[in-house]
Design a protein around this nucleic acid. Structure first.
Length: 308
RNA sequence: GGUACCUUGGUCCGAGUGGUUAGGCAACGGUCUGCAAAACCGUGUACAGCGGUUCGAUUCCGCUAGGUACCU
């Protein structure tokens, strides 16, 4: 008997039915749900992020949802630490937990880990940002080449965010970023079964369009208006809000903004699908029988583990 | 009915030229170890139709079709 607890991961593109599936599984397994969603962590934007409702949260306890202010920094590494801490508590009581979310990098950080790197202070962040804004990307690349030639070689040199971050970490750590990258997966004290709902793209896009409509009916416009003054924050550089901010600015009418939300949500879903397409560990489920199929796979997995 | 102006790939936006591909957005395909619903990369030869001028026309001329404005 391995004795390892089991982490059941429900992921997939936006609007594929992750929330409903995760609740079904958690109820059947008698466990809690940990969210792996880079936007649902924030308070004040539940409608546009399709956060689990009050009713859903009454059925199954959810963790890491709506616990941060929009102005609080967050990242995959922070999520990794938070989720591990929460799971540690959950696994002390139950041998199983469900993780549900579509932020692929968060899911990967939790299941495989990411390398330990220092968090960036505001001073370092400002220093590198100012340098980039004043001198440009080429100058920043030249700087990186001096302090970390290896990273300069492998970084995406056309992507300012990646270059900035490489410089930030090297400065903060005092050693080259590249020396901190191990490429190693971290060992976890739990087994992982990772599921996603496999749905034809046409059908997924139809669900996305319908969901945007229901978000508007649920009051997305008012929700966006209420946080409009914080629009410069990264937490609000988010589909559903940036389009409505443009509407508030008079840059487009409401119908155009809503259509654009649907369009950008489709683009987001496609990026998620691209990410998932290379995940060899993913177990794809048919939408109609997702819960039952997942439960039978979980049952079989536990049986094999017990006899191992 | 008359006059003027317009018509660019994907029922989108938009620059330009007598002789290489504007660009944007979408689409499609990717990247991804720290803001990831972010950021970034790759692919796609279009100039309404017909005729004329020309070595050569998306670009010049004419006609036709559609559209916009003004006049009657």
């Amino acid at each position: 008997m391995s004795g390892k607890p089991l982490l059941v991961v429900v992921t997939g593109p936006t609007a594929s039915g992750k929330t409903a599936l995760s609740i079904s599984l958690a109820e059947a397994l008698g466990c809690d749900i940990v969210s792996a969603d880079s936007r649902q962590v924030f308070r004040d934007i539940p409608i546009g992020t399709a956060a689990p409702s009050v009713e859903e949260r009454a059925r199954v306890p959810h963790h890491l949802v709506g616990f941060l202010g929009l102005d609080e920094p967050y990242s995959a590494a922070a999520f990794e630490a938070d989720a591990l801490r929460v799971l540690d508590g959950l696994f002390a009581r139950r041998q199983v937990a469900v993780v549900c979310g579509g932020s692929m990098m968060y899911v990967d950080a939790l299941t495989g880990g990411i390398d330990d790197m220092p968090s960036i202070t505001d001073a370092t962040r400002a220093r590198v940002r100012d340098f980039y804004e004043q001198q440009g990307l080429d100058a920043l690349l030249a700087w990186l080449e001096i302090i970390d030639p290896e990273m300069h070689r492998i970084v995406d040199r056309r992507n300012p965010k990646r270059v900035i971050h490489a410089v930030e970490i090297t400065l903060q750590a005092g050693v080259p970023v590249s020396s901190l990258r191990t490429g190693q997966k971290k060992e976890r004290p739990f087994d992982v079964l990772k599921f996603c709902i496999d749905m034809p793209r046409e059908r997924l896009f139809g669900r996305i369009n319908a969901r945007v409509e229901s978000m508007m009916q649920a009051g997305l416009l008012e929700e966006a208006r209420a946080v409009r003054h914080l629009r410069h924050l990264n937490s609000l550089n988010t589909v559903g809000y940036k389009e409505l901010f443009a509407f508030f600015d008079g840059l487009m009418d409401l119908d155009t903004a809503v259509a654009r939300i649907a369009k950008n949500t489709r683009v987001y879903a496609k990026k998620q699908l691209t990410w998932l397409s290379r995940d060899a560990d993913l177990i794809r489920l048919a939408p109609e029988t997702a819960a039952a199929d997942a439960l039978s796979i979980i049952k079989k997995f536990r049986h094999n583990e017990t006899n191992a």
